[in-house]
Amino acid sequence: MAAGREAQAVKTIRTIWKHRELVVLSLPGVLFLLVFSYIPLYGIVLPFKNFRYDLGFWKSPWVGFRNFAFLFGSDNAWRITRNTVLLNLAFILVMTGVALAFALMLFEVRRRSVRAYQTAMFLPYFLSWVVVSYIFLALLDMDRGLANRILEALGAEPRLWYNDPGPWPLLLLLANTWKGAGYSAIIYYAGLMNIDREYYEAAEIDGATRFQQIRKISIPLLSPLITILFLLAIGRILYGNFDLFYNLTRNSTLLYPATDVIDTFVYRALRVTGDIGMSSAAGIYQSVVGFFIVLAANLVVRRIHPENSLF
């Protein structure tokens, strides 16, 4: 046994030496990930400690499951999980539908028009979320915002948008779709461009209408791509877009019931309230459960389209 392992080690070293130039090329990236992604994996045990900066990781006392008990004992855990999952689910479903519809429509118009639409629809993608939050303010400002001015013109009561969580799931859904639809539509459009023209020509000869061609050719042939992108997105359902939830709401406390997600909670616990225990507990909860979700999603992808699975 030991001899076999030794021989294996010698073989590995020989391989590395033989390909040392390639090893060197990959070294900066590998070392970087070792430091920035692998060393922080010790975070798995962090929530089981009462971490103190002055004592450091090793000397901080163990506290067992206390941090998790605090997290799941409050209604925080339920609230942030519910918000993260439901909002992300709505984002994924609506984005898939809208992007697919836009792609099918782009496919119907001439190339020159495609380029013009594409440029306009891509614009929001290039904006930072901070800039988008300025747009939101211009629309939703209590005194001067365009939304309230329109409500007033219609004779309705103006609303205190940043105080009322009610409409926010919808507002966030709109913002997310507005910013990303152009980007996602291009992916599906590219998929459509890859479909063999002959299918359409044959359908044309058989007298199929455009609508029938979309239903019987475009959508079925796009479905692998749709499934994969959908499942990949589902795999990351516990990870919210921090910028979206933190910035657009202007971090308004009154909106937390509808807009607080795991990522914003982790950030606040770390940097605002300084509760390392709570922050790392929520972070590890997200990481571990998220890992199983992504494994499950990948398993499904592998069942349907083995060549597209991540691993």
């Binding site: 990959s26 990236g29 590998v30 990930l33 430091v35 920035f36 992604s37 692998y38 060393i39 922080p40 994996l41 010790y42 975070g43 798995i44 962090l46 971490f51 982790v266 950030y267 770390l270 390392i276 922050s279 790392s280 972070g283 590890i284 997200q286 990481s287 998220g290 890992f291 992504v294 494994l295 991540l310 691993f311």
Partner: peptide
């Protein structure tokens, strides 16, 4: 090496240890 590079996409130690680092 591929596995080493892409594993962090699936699992991480969370924000806190990375921040401390």
């Amino acid at each position: 090496t591929s596995f080493f590079v892409f594993f962090p996409m699936l699992f991480s130690g969370g924000l806190v240890p990375w921040y401390i680092l």
